[in-house]
Design a protein around this nucleic acid. Structure first.
Lengths: 121, 121
DNA sequence: TGCATACATGCACATTCTTGCAAATTTCAG
DNA sequence: CTGAAATTTGCAAGAATGTGCATGTATGCA
């Protein structure tokens, strides 16, 4: 019974969904609660159509859930701990990058860990 | 200063390397210590050339390190905790898959968590 | 009903990955 | 030096993804 193979495929599939900067930012953006598509688009400076496509992917993989209110669609993390889990990977990023941009990592950790920053670049 | 954007790109890059079943299996295979290419190939039923290619990728991203001894190249995890971190993602895999193959996940967790199983499928 | 807002979808094109094999390299044994 | 073992590399073809835009759909409001 190829349990290991099957599970590794499931995991690989999950990682594939997370292998995109925009989607990671969306997840972190939802870290502190639900937001609608337009808000997310403004926060990440992305066209809503793109945001919508990403969210559709994340939703298909049960990473986010949707709630409709009028003409707004609010999205939230299906399993909030994913945001923390992702941040735990920071020490794993390429060592060169870490040395060169250690500041960025610390800054990002601070930003993403903050209560709810008003998006800053 | 686009710290968040930069870091999200670094992370996405990391996830991309992990978005492949074979590479995940290689990492879990190295969980308990270094192994050489041929051994890994036999364990995963993959041609050594493929294993070598995957390892080259993982090495380029500083996820594994190499040690040469004679004509054997031994690989090991650069940061062992990655194996545990990956397993922490199991609860995140698609719910349908979880319901249908919960057994596999439990089985896999057991297998991968075991001291050093002699590879079983 | 008619129009604007908020999202979702469908497509075509470009780019990146994966894969299987053949061809190099490096090292050890005789 | 010669050949085999252990690995790495180079390629080409096919599969997946990402991207920009145009089009569709649903909802709120006058």
């Amino acid at each position: 019974m190829p349990s290991r193979l099957i599970v590794s495929r499931e995991l690989a599939d999950l990682f594939r969904q997370l292998a995109h900067a925009d989607r990671l930012r969306l997840i972190e953006e939802l870290r502190h609660g639900e937001k609608d598509v337009t808000t997310l688009g403004l926060a990440l400076s992305l066209p809503t159509s793109r945001v919508s496509q990403h969210l559709a992917l994340l939703r298909a993989h049960r990473l986010v859930e949707e709630r409709r209110d009028g003409r707004n669609h609010f999205y939230r993390l299906a399993q909030p701990f994913i945001a923390d889990w992702i941040l735990q990977a920071l020490p794993l990023v390429d060592i060169r990058a870490r040395l060169e941009e250690a500041e960025h990592i610390d800054a990002a950790r601070a930003l993403w860990s903050a209560p709810a920053p008003n998006s800053s670049h």
